[in-house]
């Protein structure tokens, strides 16, 4: 068993374990831990595919940013509850059938294209920076504009709340 296979297996197990936890747990904080495990697993999969910058950004943006924000939201929303914050899960056969059908459809559609996707050769960050600030400058600026729009949207929602 090569090192790549071990890395892929570990990342896959981490992501799948987190997904299973998100599916079944009822406590809000455990849900967040499951989501954190899933996101770290996804970062591991990015590393496996030879994309270290994307893996780092995933850890910083998601695990360090979005997840902390979600934990904060859980604390605010459940702050008046006396007991531990419990969330309701309504397992449904219909929902499971739809999710399974979507999964099978994705695999069937992409099987011939993806096949056995192999890791790409690792990219030096300088090459990525040249790409982003050169031919992909428009994409880079669009990403910045989108983040700014999100920030303005959040401020607008907050201001509307005060009125």
């Amino acid at each position: 068993m090569t090192l790549e296979v071990i890395a892929f297996t570990l990342a896959g197990l981490l992501a799948a374990g987190g997904a299973v936890a998100v599916l079944f747990v009822r406590e809000a904080m455990r849900l967040m831990i499951g989501l954190g495990s899933f996101l770290l697993g996804v970062a591991g999969l990015f590393l496996y595919f030879g994309l270290p910058f994307l893996a780092t950004a995933q850890v910083f943006v998601y695990v360090g940013g979005v997840l902390v924000l979600m934990v904060f939201a859980v604390m605010v929303v459940h702050r008046q509850a006396d007991d531990r914050p419990v969330m309701e899960v309504r397992h449904d056969v219909g929902a499971a059938a739809v999710a399974l059908a979507v999964t099978v459809t994705i695999v069937a559609c992409l099987r011939s294209v993806v096949g056995d996707a192999l890791p790409t050769p690792g990219v030096y960050s300088g090459v990525l920076a040249d790409e982003l600030l050169g031919p992909k400058l428009l994409v880079f600026e669009m990403a910045g504009a989108l983040l700014l729009t999100g920030l303005v949207a959040v401020l607008t929602i907050r201001e509307g709340e005060d009125r």
Binding site: G50, L54, V66, D130, L147
Partner: peptide, 20 residues
């Protein structure tokens, strides 16, 4: 690799803005 990372980064930004 650079093109793939640029595309992945765009999705990451969209997801972060959506969460916020």
């Amino acid at each position: 690799g650079a093109t793939i990372e640029a595309a992945g980064l765009m999705v990451l930004v969209v997801a972060a803005a959506e969460a916020a």
